[in-house]
């Protein structure tokens, strides 16, 4: 009996917390498709705001997608071999490098942006190009890729696999392609989704680094909140949700499948 009451209380509490988070999101999405938010939903449902957002901000949306994919490409090409080298090498130096790579996790995005500006702000064309924001995103997301790949390495005993392939005559690069990458696939996938999601939603660092010509979706979003009708800003949020939620669901799903194994 007592267990039951505790269970019901826990359930209520959980639902309450979920509602606390979900209601604003739902309201915001609803606002994005109502004709006039102040008159409520009875004013009618429309896609005109979504269309308007698309017209005004299509550039930032495309930019966000391209930067997310670019960030993914760099973290894959650099992060996986780095994780491999760090894991197989081991030792004190490897641990130091790992700490340095992971450092951005603990540093506020603003501080990273400031450091980048101080260091490279003088290189005008780099400063003004997309590459500048890409660089920021790579620094910010790299630890997530390296960490999730190293986590999967730890579960598949990658050192033995590597030595096994080496004993059969495979050179390091060959072992990496034939054995390491295929067996680390779940970790690589999880890392990739995380990198893309984080890059799409990143605001602090991007806001500091952006120029009027290099704006990403979240920066545009802040912009629209400040200067547009509430409905437009909400429609913008709606588009962001549509992009990000499938990624989050996929991440959850992969995580669960990983736990089952």
């Amino acid at each position: 009996m007592r267990d039951r009451i505790i269970f019901i209380l826990q359930l209520l509490f959980t639902l309450l917390v979920a509602a606390f988070l979900a209601v604003p999101a739902a309201l915001s999405i609803a606002a994005g498709v109502t004709v006039n938010y102040f008159r409520g939903i009875q004013s009618g449902i429309t896609l005109q705001w979504v269309a308007q957002v698309w017209e005004l901000y299509a550039g930032t949306i495309m930019a966000s997608i391209l930067i997310a994919l670019g960030t993914l490409a760099v973290t894959l090409v650099v992060g996986i071999p780095a994780a491999y080298a760090l894991y197989v090498r081991g030792g004190r130096l490897a641990r130091l490098v790992e700490e340095i790579i992971t450092l951005p996790l603990a540093i506020p995005g603003l501080a990273i942006a400031l450091a980048l500006l101080l260091t490279y702000g003088g290189f005008g064309s780099f400063r003004r190009s997309w590459l500048f924001i890409l660089a920021g995103h790579v620094i910010f997301t790299m630890p997530f890729m390296v960490r999730s790949v190293m986590a999967v390495f730890a579960t598949i005993d990658v050192k033995s696999l590597d030595e096994g392939a080496a004993s059969l005559g495979a050179a390091p690069w060959r072992r990496f392609i034939d054995v390491i990458v295929p067996n680390a696939a779940p970790g690589i996938l999880a890392g990739s989704l995380m990198v893309v999601t984080l890059s799409l939603g990143e605001f602090n660092l991007t806001w500091m680094l952006h120029t009027p010509l290099t704006k990403t979706l979240p920066v545009g979003l802040a912009d629209s909140y400040a200067s547009m009708r509430l409905e437009v800003a909400s429609a913008y949020t709606l588009i962001f949700f549509v992009m990000i939620i499938p990624l989050l669901v996929a991440m959850q799903w992969i995580g669960e499948r990983g736990n089952l194994r």
């Binding site: 005993d157 030595e163 096994g164 080496a166 004993s167 005559g169 495979a170 067996n183």
Partner: peptide
Amino acid sequence: IEKRNVGMVFQSYALFP
């Protein structure tokens, strides 16, 4: 090791999944 032409059987087998 990859240049020594040894055949190795590991305690954990190290087979490729």
